[in-house]
Computed example of a mutant assay.
Amino acid sequence: MEHKKKSCDSVWRQFSSFLKEKGYNLEQSTSPESLNTILKSWASNMKKKDDTDYKENVIKHMLNTTAKLVQEKYFNEWNIKINSFTDPCFKAARDVRVANRRKLQTLPEKRTVNSAALTENEFLNMVKILNENTPDGFQKKFFLIASFELAWCGGEGANCFTYYLKPEIENKGLITGRIEYNPVFSKTAQGGSKPLTSSKWLTKNKDNPNFCPVRLYHLLMMKRGNNINTDRMFLAPNPFWNKIQNAVWYKNSPVGVNEIGKWVKSLAIATGLDIKRRKNIKSFCALISGVCFG
C-alpha cells in the first residue's frame, strides 16, 4: 500500500506540474469539455524530464492513475461525479490515450517486457512445426507471424475482424502488395478517416515466402468458404475437412479468446521452450523485436 501511495503521489506531482506549465486549472467550475481538453493534452504531451517517451506500460499506468485521482478529487471536494473511462464527453481524451499507447507499442524499446523475450530461433522453431496444409496449422501459422508483424498484444489478435485488414492500393489504383491493419476500420467504411490511430502493415517477405504474412493472409481469406458469415478472423477448424470431398476448412464460429491464448503455450511446450521463465505466457507479441509473452 505504501508503494502504491508513493506511485500515486509521484503521478499527481507530475500532473500538477503539467497543469501549472500549461496554465490549466482544476476547479469546481471547470466544464467536462475543458477537463477533457486537459486530459487529452496530458495524454499527448507526457514525457520524461529529458523529453523522451516513457515506455508503453508506464504511460498506461500514469494515465489511468491520473484519471482516477481526478475523479476522486472532483467527488471528494465538490461532490461531482465524473468517469473519464466511460463518460462520452471524455472520448477524445480516451482516443488520444489509446493512440499514444499504440504508437509506443510499435517501438521495440518502448514495448512492455514482462519476462524473458524469445530469441529469433525460438520464434522460427514455433512457426516451423506448423503444417500450413491443415486448417489448424495454417491458421496458427498466420496468427504467429501476424502477431510479430503487427505487435499484437493481449487480445488484439484474438479479437481481430477481417475488415481490420485490407490490401493497400495506390492513388493510381495499383495494389502495392502490403496489407494495412487498423482496428478503426469499420465493415462499411474502410479507408475513411482514421483519427488518432496509426496503421500497421503486413509486408511481403521476399527472402522467405514460407514466412510471408501477405501470402498467408490472402490464402486464409480464400479458405473462408461460403458457409462463413462471421467477420472474426480466426475460426474453429472443420474436423471433417479431409474426410469429405470438397469440405470447407473452417466452421462458421470464431475461436474463443481463451483458446487462442492456449495456442502459444502449447506451441512453446511443443518446441521445448522453458515456459517457467515466461510465467505470463498468455498472448503473443512482437517477439524478435524484444517483446515477450505477457
Rank of each mutant, 00 (worst) to 15 (best):
79 N>Q: 06
91 K>E: 05
137 G>T: 10
30 T>S: 01
134 T>P: 13
149 E>C: 09
127 V>Q: 13
119 T>Y: 03
289 S>F: 05
249 W>Q: 04
96 V>W: 00
105 Q>V: 11
263 W>A: 01
100 N>Y: 04
150 L>Q: 14
116 A>I: 14
61 H>R: 05
272 G>R: 12
160 C>D: 02
114 N>L: 04
162 T>H: 02
79 N>I: 02
211 F>Y: 15
1 M>V: 06
62 M>W: 11
274 D>M: 10
261 G>C: 01
67 A>T: 08
126 M>S: 10
74 Y>D: 08
218 H>K: 05
91 K>W: 01
93 A>C: 10
156 E>L: 13
258 N>V: 12
94 R>Q: 07
78 W>V: 09
240 F>T: 13
193 S>R: 03
104 L>M: 07
107 L>Y: 12
113 V>Q: 06
17 S>A: 13
131 N>R: 04
181 Y>Q: 05
200 K>Q: 12
136 D>V: 14
55 K>Q: 04
275 I>K: 00
233 M>P: 07
231 D>T: 13
273 L>T: 03
13 R>V: 12
84 S>T: 15
166 K>H: 11
156 E>N: 13
193 S>Y: 00
153 C>H: 08
134 T>L: 13
165 L>G: 10
37 T>P: 01
173 G>T: 01
48 K>Y: 02
236 A>D: 12
7 S>R: 15
125 N>A: 01
210 N>R: 14
225 G>Q: 01
117 A>L: 01
54 Y>P: 01
154 G>K: 12
242 N>P: 01
142 F>D: 07
104 L>H: 03
42 W>K: 03
129 I>E: 05
129 I>F: 04
18 F>I: 02
47 K>R: 09
209 P>V: 11
71 Q>E: 10
64 N>E: 08
282 K>L: 10
199 S>E: 02
257 V>P: 11
122 E>K: 14
155 G>A: 08
279 K>G: 11
48 K>T: 09
188 T>K: 14
47 K>C: 05
62 M>E: 07
83 N>I: 01
234 F>C: 09
142 F>W: 15
234 F>N: 12
293 F>M: 10
241 W>A: 15
33 E>V: 13
284 F>K: 03
33 E>W: 01
229 N>H: 02
273 L>K: 08
273 L>V: 04
249 W>F: 01
228 I>Q: 12
219 L>I: 07
28 Q>V: 00
173 G>Q: 03
281 I>H: 08
112 T>V: 04
9 D>V: 04
154 G>D: 10
27 E>M: 12
262 K>G: 08
239 P>H: 07
